[in-house]
Simulated assay, not measured.
Amino acid sequence: MYIDTHAHIFRANESAAKVVRYVPNYDASAKEYLANLKAFNFSYGVLIQPSFLGVDNSYLLNALENDNLRGVVVINPNNMNDLMHEKVCGLRLNLIGKDKPDFNDYKDVLAYLKESKKHIELHKELDKLLLVIEDLAKYDVKIMIDHLARPSKDTFKLLDEFSNFKDLDIYFKVSGFYRLDDDLAFSKDVFDKLKDIFSIKRFVYGSDWPHTNYENLINYEKAFNDFCFVAGEHKDIILKDNAKELFFI
């Protein structure tokens, strides 16, 4: 039972966030995504709210009518309705290019995440990500890190600082390699470094379909094959067992 823990769906030219880095001019539907899952023998997929749709999770939530899909949403901290959906398994903070959040504003949210065993997902550049994790440490919640923590070759050494977080309930998505200096060998170095710090059970796979901003360089098949190279002998445990509890499967 393969599980893909990171994909996006959206309609062309739609955005709901106040500030956007990118708005695709094409549709990426749940039907197309499910076809990819079937073609590559994946049993389940997890839809991640894209940054350009802000807190309007309606398109994602509608897709969760399919039993093979789960969701991770983006919310305002004063409105947890979408987060409480039975097939939503986490909250995402899209922090690329943004200031570190004040988690005093998220106290009720973080208490709910802990009680419900849902997780908080962080998308942030490595040098600033570490500061966010330090702030979250006291809340005792599950933390999911997108795209192997987004290091660059210049910040690679900062991965050593994850040794300070070994006691946290922290996980990593083995995904988005083309976002890591567009160098697959470097991505493998990043994975190997994190694997030396954390148990292999702390890693899950994400296709990052439909690979926004990189559509001409990557597709579902290449993303999967690249993962197999990066994960090596650990491929099966990452694809199968690691994600079940985290994503309510």
Rank of each mutant, 00 (worst) to 15 (best):
M1S: 12
M1V: 10
Y2M: 07
H6S: 04
A7M: 12
I9Q: 08
F10L: 02
F10E: 08
A12H: 01
A12V: 01
N13G: 01
A16V: 00
K18L: 15
Y22R: 10
P24S: 07
D27L: 07
D27F: 08
S29R: 05
A30Y: 05
A30L: 08
A30F: 05
E32W: 12
L34K: 13
L34S: 09
A35R: 12
A35P: 00
N36A: 01
N36V: 00
N41A: 14
L47M: 09
L53K: 12
V55Q: 09
N57I: 05
Y59E: 08
L60G: 00
N62C: 02
N62L: 11
A63K: 02
L64Y: 04
E65D: 09
N66H: 14
D67C: 07
N68V: 04
L69F: 08
R70E: 09
V74R: 02
H85L: 03
K87N: 11
V88N: 11
G90D: 01
R92I: 10
N94W: 06
L95N: 06
L95Q: 06
K100Q: 15
D102W: 04
F103C: 07
N104G: 13
Y106C: 02
D108Y: 10
V109R: 02
L110Q: 03
A111R: 07
Y112M: 07
K114P: 01
S116F: 04
K117Y: 10
K117M: 02
H119M: 05
H119K: 02
I120R: 09
H123N: 13
H123V: 12
L126Q: 09
D127Y: 09
I133P: 10
D135Q: 13
L136N: 09
K138W: 01
K142L: 08
M144D: 06
M144F: 07
M144R: 00
I145R: 00
H147T: 04
L148K: 11
S152K: 12
D154E: 15
F156V: 03
F156H: 10
L158Y: 10
L158Q: 13
L158T: 01
L158K: 11
F162T: 03
N164T: 10
K166N: 04
D167A: 14
L168K: 12
V174Y: 04
V174N: 04
G176Q: 05
R179M: 14
D181V: 07
D181I: 09
D182R: 13
L184R: 00
L184P: 00
A185N: 13
K188M: 02
D196T: 06
I197Y: 11
F198I: 09
K201N: 15
K201I: 02
R202A: 13
R202T: 12
V204M: 14
V204T: 14
Y205C: 04
G206R: 02
W209C: 07
Y214K: 15
I218W: 08
N219G: 01
E221M: 01
A223I: 06
F224P: 00
D226M: 13
A231R: 06
A231V: 03
A231K: 06
G232T: 09
H234Y: 15
I237R: 13
I237L: 10
K240F: 10
N242I: 11
N242Q: 05
N242C: 09
F248E: 05
